[in-house]
Structure formats: structure tokens, C-alpha cells
Design a protein around this nucleic acid. Structure first.
Lengths: 188, 188
DNA sequence: CATAACCCTTACGTACGCGTGAGGGTTTGC
DNA sequence: GCAAACCCTCACGCGTACGTAAGGGTTATG
């Protein structure tokens, strides 16, 4: 269960963690900007395990705002944004050490402008890779569909006594040649 | 260099390895049905390493037709089909042990019909997974594009002296809220 | 103040898909 | 018949992203 505004924990300093003048973007309904999350809460909210959160911290990808008197990690709502960011990057094919590099590069950037241009560069490269991967997956999707339709004929036209090794001489598949995904399964 | 028709190697048996009556599908221009490949040839032709080929054999995914007098593995052209099949399955997200299971199930199928229906089942499931992955990747692609356009504004409108931590209060990005892929990089 | 349900650090274990030798035969081509 | 370029069989190593205890404090609740 996510606890809210755990201010009775030893949370030193002012009530609001960000003193930015701009209206802070409300992270989520029910998560106010001074919410404090324990590692378990953060884990549940992001679908990660506690172990994973710890790992991210060890790798420098994530930092708790603070610690409680008893050394509990205390996270703000921005940790949610951060962990979801990590997750999306992973889905895009970044390894955790790729992300480490990226975080370092962002941190080393003196100006926001430089940070933005570095981020753009990385994202632009990844966009190309992602599109390549999409093309590959779309092609494989087509091959799956083609194979399924090819195999459909086996379900209706083939006789139960025919053994697999007779497939190469099968006449029941119009003139279309055997899809790779089917041929590979027979070849052995 | 791929050698062809290495019949001077100890290749016992008749000249043609398949005596099927049907016209054998020519595997590739320059690869006739009685071509013999050594493991290195197979590796080069498929982009795999020799180690990988050995592994596939250990896992029961692949079998050399024969061995030379000196215990060299001798592969036929169907090994090409098989290795490419394995590669495509890997790209679809099958692990090698998934493929092991699949190969076992195919081999255990008495009839071609049963084998076909089992294969269909696996492919149908994988088709759904593939489409889900496609959806996810397409969404991430959109987010990359969105982030790049957002970051473009930083390159033109932002001042060189602005530090990264000032980004949350930036006014230069119309009303569109910060994309996750950008917000995550700033949150630290 | 007791107890359940958390949290802490440390550190070894796991699954996957090969990489990388070591030590030693085999083929081919000149 | 000799050297280069292959191939063989072990068998340990590696990078990634956590899993899984072990041993021991901390917090909220009654």
C-alpha cells in the first residue's frame, strides 16, 4: 500500500522538496509533489522489484532524495518518472550501462542546451535502430502469417498417415514455395 | 571460401543425398543439393560463429549429415535452411530452449498433420506476442519522435547559460507537457 | 512494548548465448 | 612431405539483469 506524505518519518528540511516557482507538473492523481515513497512503494508503483531499484541506484541511475533516521531510502515522485524512463529505455534496447553513460553525459553537461543536444543525438541514433527493428519485426510478422496459412492446408488437405519426412514432396500447397519458418522445422 | 561438391572427402553413400522424386528446391544459386559444407562454411554462410553451430548441435537443433574420416562434421544445404530458421526464431524472441522444445515436439509427432498443427499453435501464439511487441515499439518510436521535436526547441530557443535543473520551469515549449523520455533524463 | 511487515547490507547464484583458449588431429596445396 | 588453414573435444569465462538468501535493524499499529 502506498503511503502518502509520510512526514511523520524523519524528513528533514522544508515541507516542499522542490521550491521551483513554476507549477510542478502533477505526477499522478493521488501523488502530490511532497509524497515520500519507500523502496517497496516505488517498486510496486513501477512494476520493478526492490532488487532492481537497488541495482539502479548502485549503477548511479537513481538516487533517493534522502534517508530516514533508520537509513531507509526516501524517494520523491520524480523517482517514478526516473524509473519509468529507465524502463522505456530498456524496451528501446538500451542496456543498463548504456543508460549509465547517458546519465553521466547528461550530468556532465554544463548547460541545458548541451544536455539537450547530447540527448537528441542518442535518441536520433536509437530512432533509426528502432525503425530497423520495426521493419525486421514486420517482416517476421508477415512470415508468421504466411506460414500459418501454409500450415492451414496441412490441417485440411493432409492425410493422418503421412510422416513428416514426406513433406518435401507434398503437392497440396498450390505453387507457393514453402515458407522458411516451415521449411526449417522440417529439415532435420 | 565455400567449397562445392566436396566429394573427394570421404562422403560415403550415393551421390545424391536426397532421393526424393520431387524436384528439390534449389537452395541458393551455386549451392546444389549435393553440396557438402564444413562447419566453417556453414558459419560463414549464415553469419554465425563456429561455436554457435556447435552449440546448436549440442542442443539437438542441428545435425551434420555425416562425419569425414577425420571426424569433421559434414553438412548438407538443408543445414543452411535450418540455421536460418533458428536465427529467425531467435529474432522472434524464442530462446534456444524454446527452440529445443519445438524441435522435440516436431520430432515426436507421428504424422505430418500433427506436426503441422503443433507448429501452428506455437506460431499463432508468437504472432500475438510479435504484434504486441510491434505496438510497443511503434509507441516508443512515436515518443522518440516527439522527444526529438521537443528537444529541437532547446537547440534554438534556449540560452547557453541555462543549467539543466532550470528545465522544469522552462517556458519555451508551448503548452505541450514534457515527454517522458525527456523528463526522465532531467529528473535526478 | 510487542509484533508484523517493512527495510538494510553483503554476497553468492542463475539463465542465456555464446567467447576463448588449450592441446591436439586433419586436409589441402604446393 | 610439409606448412597453412582448417577441424576436433573439453572446459572454464563472460556480460547482462537481476534472484535469493542470510543476518540483522526499523516503523507502524494495537
Amino acid at each position: 500500500m502506498a503511503r502518502k506524505v509520510r512526514l511523520h518519518l524523519t524528513t528533514p528540511g522544508p515541507t516542499n522538496e522542490r521550491s521551483s516557482l513554476a507549477e510542478p507538473p502533477i505526477e499522478e492523481l493521488g501523488v502530490s509533489p511532497d509524497t515520500v515513497l519507500l523502496v517497496g512503494d516505488l517498486a510496486k508503483a513501477t512494476g520493478k522489484t526492490v532488487r532492481a531499484i537497488h541495482l539502479y541506484e548502485d549503477l548511479g541511475l537513481l538516487r533517493p532524495h534522502d534517508r530516514s533516521k533508520g537509513r531507509y531510502r526516501l524517494f520523491g515522485p520524480d523517482a517514478l518518472v526516473r524509473v519509468r524512463w529507465i524502463t522505456k529505455l530498456q524496451s528501446l534496447g538500451f542496456s543498463l550501462s548504456d543508460i549509465q553513460e547517458l546519465v553521466r553525459a547528461q550530468g556532465d553537461s554544463e548547460s541545458a542546451k548541451l544536455a539537450a543536444s547530447r540527448l537528441s543525438e542518442v535518441y536520433l541514433t536509437k530512432l533509426a535502430e528502432t525503425r530497423a527493428k520495426l521493419d525486421e519485426l514486420r517482416q517476421l510478422e508477415r512470415e508468421l502469417v504466411e506460414s500459418l496459412s501454409y500450415l492451414n492446408a496441412c490441417g485440411s488437405a493432409c492425410e493422418p498417415l503421412v510422416p513428416v519426412h514426406a513433406c518435401p514432396s507434398c503437392e497440396r500447397h498450390s505453387e507457393s514455395h514453402t515458407p522458411d519458418l516451415v521449411a526449417g522445422a522440417q529439415t532435420h
